[in-house]
Design a protein around this nucleic acid. Structure first.
Lengths: 253, 253
DNA sequence: CGAACGTTTGAGATGACTCAAGCGTTGTGG
DNA sequence: CCACAACGCTTGAGTCATCTCAAACGTTCG
């Protein structure tokens, strides 16, 4: 195994950060760091994995944003997940051996690869670390379910409010949002593909959110005036993210 | 551990059936069977798990249908998964320790419970079986993603065609569909909650499917005249189910 | 400076929704 | 065994959220 370039800081630093009940032990983190076989920088809009490809490694996102998406036969696209730094992007591909969707960078990224053979060794030798990796994939699944709720039951303004609230919470957990403002370098078309809307309608909804004083989305920055208000608008309840704050279920949903 | 009643056949018989690459070895199946602490029959419309509950066991569905769903603050409901016999309904709750959704029987069911402490033992002592359990939860996640595509990008008639095609494929794998006809004892309201539509509209779409000669849904029986045609209508491609037939990715999506 | 890309706005079309009512089926208790 | 209540299915009429098509404008980058 070659020694990957590592410019400062640990690669896995943000992996499961904020998830206190499954925080990695120092030795587990060391095991994972050692399992990284390669580190790469890639430009925006690069396809990492195409659906159906046979996979032999999994990708940890160190910096930048990645989307996972499904295209229909007419080229319409539905994004099924947005990955932020610290996410193990295609760990699903380890037990499944192939993906049902594409993995594409939204921005320039830094990624770390872990070979499946090294994951095999981890599952043999480190049952608790294995359960934490499993947990990470199930967090993804929990987000999928919340997205299903979003697409199935919320209208356009609620969907966007919900997505921005979720992204704010996730980025806050890894130190990339102060709770009100964060960088999100994606286009309105990306937002449309996430929320199951057209670009035109996303544009109108963003104007309404601006007019209502709820939040602004301009030059890749999201500004949320009142996060609680926005969350209310989007029926967002952070429980499913399993983050430390506001984690007790309440009366409502 | 008490000896659970087992009226004929193995409880785990249908678990991962049809998933040849991860078929359970006889000894793994025995381990899983022995891990069952209790078997229960429950009537239709029984809530097994409420969102936020602390979980100490997971549920294997032996017979019947179960839904997993999220309710919004006005009581609107989005079903995020339908479980069929052989599914490990809330295995997600094992690493996560609580669920973000409700688990409710759609029909009368027979379920088998496995305590989390016994799953702990399995993860310690049986790494390959553990990976297969992990795999089972990731199949769920793959279905979640396909459902996201369905809700985000398909219109009403396509959504229902897609759902019925998916259900046909899943039931065929466990011997509950002959490829054209199967029992699906749910209401049009259930279908609406699955497809993100209203009951009224589901009714109209079902009539159109009938008029178009694609399929009928009457007295809990689904009859698909031409499965390929229906799949085409719903942009359904079984790849994401990881079943043995029609598993090669093709030119389209 | 021009091309490519992303954002914004308008006008008109439409798929799905809401509200409302009638009908069919099933199960239950008098 | 009939009557009625509860539930699910069906249909109609009118409304509305979102889409489609089209065009103009702003920004970035080579």
């Amino acid at each position: 195994m070659n020694v990957p370039e590592r410019d400062g800081g640990m690669l896995t630093e943000r992996f499961l950060r904020g998830h206190n009940d499954v925080a990695l032990l120092p030795e587990e983190r060391a095991v994972l760091e050692r399992a990284v076989s390669e580190v790469k920088k890639l430009p925006a809009r690069t396809t990492l994995v195409r659906h159906g490809d046979a996979l032999h490694q999994s990708t940890l996102l160190v910096d930048g944003f990645i989307r996972r998406s499904i295209d229909d036969r007419d080229g319409q696209r539905q994004t099924v997940a947005v990955q932020v730094p610290g996410d193990f992007v295609d760990l699903h591909g380890y037990p499944l051996k192939k993906l049902d969707h594409d993995v594409v960078t939204l921005t320039a990224v830094r990624v770390a690869f872990v070979r499946h053979t090294d994951l095999d060794a981890i599952t043999r030798e480190h049952p608790t670390l294995t359960r934490k990796l499993w947990y990470a994939t199930l967090l993804d699944a929990a987000m999928h379910r919340e997205w299903l709720f979003r697409l199935g039951r919320l209208d356009a303004i609620e969907r966007i409010s919900h997505f921005l609230s979720e992204t704010n919470a996730r980025l806050k957990a890894i130190g990339l949002s102060d709770g009100h403002r964060f960088r999100l370098p994606i286009t309105q078309t990306d937002l449309a593909e996430i929320c199951g809307l057209t670009t035109v309608h996303v544009n109108r909804v963003l104007r309404q959110l601006r007019d209502d004083g709820l939040c602004t989305f301009k030059s890749s920055m999201v500004d949320i005036a009142d996060p609680d208000q926005l969350a209310l608008r989007g029926q967002f309840d952070a429980g499913y993210l399993h983050l430390p704050w506001r984690d007790e279920p309440e009366a409502g949903r």
